[in-house]
Structure formats: structure tokens, C-alpha cells
Design a protein around this nucleic acid. Structure first.
Lengths: 197, 197
DNA sequence: GCAAATTAATGATTTATTCAAG
DNA sequence: CTTGAATAAATCATTAATTTGC
């Protein structure tokens, strides 16, 4: 019995595909991309969305850190210019760029790059434009993978119910107090005192 | 017209409940906790899971940083010992503790604290113990909220389909190449060259 | 050859930092 | 200025490589 591994390990095919996607320049796959990649990679073995997400995150970070170290060591040794590495053309001189939040781009920018991939194949669903619908239960953060595992697996994930505050000044309706399970033991539990409503 | 706000802002009731939960010691709510809190708080106004998650994350971080600053300033000024702050009893001298991963606790530890909250009310579903089922599409990471928004909202989220690597050495089955949409313009796009399979 | 011991890689989590809305 | 949202960096923990003694 191999006792199902506790953490995902990519099969050679999965790894190859991920590396190729990375090599092509993919760094921060969005939700749809993660789902698509996961779906396709699941042909080669067990895989989840978070694995894909983590893989890109770690790979990017370690690629960058490797580059940093190389540059530092090089700079310390001699002043040889850049090494090769022209695969995913990093934004010029952005090898050590700390952050870079190009958020909320104003509706239509950089239309030149779009022309490079004129493949309007809407492979993924493109729901309505208004809010609601899928937006509700879309996210269960990364960290919850383990908690969920501990919760569903019978590993004796102890229960630390936390009483819900009940002095909300509006009509309490159906809400009074409800216990919450807690599996991570860090600083998650309630303080033992002051829980009388 | 107030033009629906683009980011969540807690209503007074929601904020009060969140603060109370925090005050009681909740720091890293897990998946079930986030869902439960979200469900109950949605009685008081529009809210999503990520809002709850972010709120705890930010609140913890900023509480800690505030404490750090206070300590630093105090230490610099005079040597007054700790300020008050005995609400969520921080692990002794853990005010600036870097990490602390109590992961994979061996099945039954710290049973004393459990006795403090002997409320085995299984309010939340407790699914089977084996894999699969809910574990599949459980997580869409935090960052995807915005992407999803840009995608579903008609803001002209440009399409940057990325060709899927196709030289996987197993039988390609139904997978050959598939375009992926990309909305974040950071370094997400594929390199323009080398996309011929 | 082969496990136990040690080290290197890397998957998974948490914390720090930054951007930007209000 | 406060704080929601997002990303990057640091860290932990487990698995795979590898070394080592037999």
C-alpha cells in the first residue's frame, strides 16, 4: 500500500505541459485558465486547481530568485552582461522588479498585443455581464485545501467551536450564535473567557 | 445614482460581527468558517467569501503592524513594558513571531483546550472521508475575484489566447491546443514567437 | 544492490508589501 | 488616511534525489 500521497506531485506529462506553458510566458493564470489547464491535465493524473495555481506561483518565484542569485553572483565575480534566457521575454529590466500592479486597465489598452493572437475562440463560458450568479461561491482560498482535507478526512480534526457574537443591534432574525469548527490550531480559537451572551 | 461601489465595504452590522469574532480570537477562518460567516453576514448586506477572508487577513496584519510600531516607538521612548491588549491572548511573546506552522498535528494533541468548548454541534456539513466529491472544484484563489469580474463584466477584457503545448508524448486524446483568455496584463501573455506546434 | 540517512526540490501556507478605491 | 484587494516574498513541510555503510 502506497498510502495515497499527501501532496500532489506532477506526472512527467503534467510537468511538461506546465513548463511549456510557463516557457510560453504564462505567469499568473486566471481562474478560467487554471480550470482549463486543470481539466486538461487531469487526463494525465490526479490534479486540482490549487496545484496548478501553486505551481505557477512557486515556479515564477523560484525562477526569479534563481535569476537574482545568478545576477548577484555574476555581478560580484565579473561584469558579464545578461545570461541567455530569452524565452519568456521579461519586461525589460524587470528581472528584479518588486511589484507591478497594472490593475484595472482602462477598457482598451495595448491593442497591439491582442492582434498577435487573433483567436476569438470562446472556449470558456462567458456568462452574463451583471453581478451575482457565479460570483457567489466562486472562491475558497488556497489555504483551505489542507483544512478541508483535515476536515473531511477522519484524522480527528478536533472541534473548536467558536461562539458567534450575538449582540448585533439589528433584529437577530435566525442568527443568534453558531459554532464554527476550527482545525488550524494557531491562534484561531476563541479566548476562553467572555463568551457569555 | 450612487453607481454601485466597485469594492465591498462592510455595513456597520457586518463590521461589528467581524470585529467581535476577531476580538474572540478568530484569526484564520477556514473554509467552512468563511462560508458560515458569509452566509450569516449576507443577512445584513451584500458580501462574499473573499471579503471575509480579506478582512481577517488585513485586520490581523494591520493589528500586528500597529502593535509593532507602538512597541518600537515605546521602546525608543522609554522602557514601559507591554501595553494592555489582552483580548485575543497572543501566544506569549508572539507579537512579532514570524511564522508558526503547527501543521499536521499527530491526530490528538492539545486536548485540554478542546474541553473548553465542548459544543459538538455539527452545524456544518461533514462529508465523507474519502477523496473526490467536494474536493474537486473547491478553490478558486483569491486573486481571481477581479479577473472574474473583468471577465464577466463587459469591460472589454481583451482576449489573449495562449496556445497549449501539444508535444506531450502520450496519446494526445482530445487535447491538442486550446486558447486561454488572459485579462491581467502583467507578464501573463505568451511570447509572440515560438507558438507553432 | 538496498535501505537508512542526508540533502536537494518543490508543493503548500503564511506574512509582508503594494496598489488603489472611497 | 483608512482599508479592501492583490501580489510577492519568506517560510514550513514533505517528497524525490543522493549519498553512505553494509
Amino acid at each position: 500500500m502506497i498510502s495515497r500521497p499527501r501532496r500532489w506531485s506532477p506526472t512527467p506529462e503534467q510537468l511538461m505541459v506546465l513548463q511549456e506553458l510557463y516557457r510560453k510566458g504564462l505567469r499568473n493564470p486566471n481562474s478560467a485558465q487554471v480550470r482549463t489547464i486543470t481539466a486538461h491535465l487531469s487526463l494525465y493524473g490526479k490534479i486540482e486547481g490549487k496545484n496548478v495555481f501553486y505551481w505557477f506561483q512557486n515556479h515564477k518565484a523560484r525562477d526569479r530568485q534563481k535569476l537574482r542569485k545568478a545576477l548577484l553572483k555574476q555581478m560580484h565575480h565579473r561584469h558579464l552582461p545578461f545570461p541567455g534566457r530569452q524565452d519568456p521575454p521579461p519586461p525589460p529590466s524587470a528581472a528584479v522588479t518588486p511589484n507591478y500592479h497594472p490593475q484595472s486597465l482602462p477598457d482598451s489598452a495595448s491593442s497591439q498585443r491582442h492582434s498577435l493572437f487573433s483567436n476569438p475562440n470562446t472556449f470558456l463560458h462567458q456568462g452574463g455581464d451583471e453581478e451575482g450568479s457565479d460570483m457567489e461561491n466562486w472562491m475558497m482560498m488556497r489555504m483551505y485545501g489542507r483544512d478541508w482535507m483535515l476536515m473531511t478526512t477522519a484524522t480527528g480534526g478536533m472541534q473548536l467551536p467558536t461562539t458567534f457574537p450575538c449582540y448585533v443591534d439589528t433584529t437577530p432574525k435566525t442568527l443568534e450564535l453558531f459554532p464554527l469548527k476550527s482545525t488550524n490550531m494557531k491562534d484561531d480559537q476563541s479566548s476562553s473567557n467572555d463568551d457569555s451572551c
